[in-house]
Amino acid sequence: MTSVLAVKNIVVKRGRRFRLQVDEFAVEPGEVVALIGPNGAGKSTLLTVLACLSLPDKGELFFLREKVSKGNALAVRRQLAVVFQEPLLLDSSVLENAALGLKLRGQKTGAKDRAYTWLQRFGVEHLATQNALTLSGGEAQRVSLARAFALEPKVLLLDEPFASIDVISRSTLIKEFKSVLSSTKTTAILVTHDFQEVLALASRVVILDQGRIRAQGTPRGIAAHEIWGGLAGAQIPPMPGS
């Protein structure tokens, strides 16, 4: 199967320190890959590289077998979508925010209609005319997710998207997000610290520590790995059959 995104022998440095050193990592179409690991493990750095937001100091990044360079990074970025922990909405209406990515990618006609459909899907269409900066954290993150899905990305990259939402809203949103992911068959890479999210969403788990991939496998398989216990500590949820 052709990988949608892949890296080979990448190295990312900050000054003289290695932040990330990954020999090989690939994401297949339809997969939902969870990147987990302690703080400073390199999860967000890897996500930033995969999103073409910064190119690695060494090594190669491939998108649909094509090597990503400075010359085609913008074109590749326009086939991906990223959702960060903060909703990062701009000072304009909710609908304009949701349609922004489409407009930046040159889709002038129908952008607002499509964005509105996605606002409906995430239950925030009634806020369409409101200024996005007046929304609550949960509402804003729903708009941020709608903005990302409206782009119909080849890969959706998420950096702890539910971390700043209160517990009750979070579980509801995760359920809705899971339903949208499976109905759209969107390939996704999710950085998270939350094991419930991993279990609910991921088809594969990759454990990073000190900038390197330490283990990977299915959530069930990885739960049996000793490193899982080390990372999860008291958070470890009971794994059926593990």
């Binding site: 913008l74 970025r77 960060f84 701009l90 000072d91 930046l104 903005r147």
Partner: peptide, 24 residues
């Protein structure tokens, strides 16, 4: 937020679109 700049780039902004959005 420094992440807002990354978000604008991630939405697919060209350098010109990026600066225009920051100015706005």
């Amino acid at each position: 937020s420094p992440k807002l700049r990354l978000q604008i780039l991630a939405l697919g902004a060209s350098p010109l679109q990026f600066w225009w959005l920051i100015i706005k």
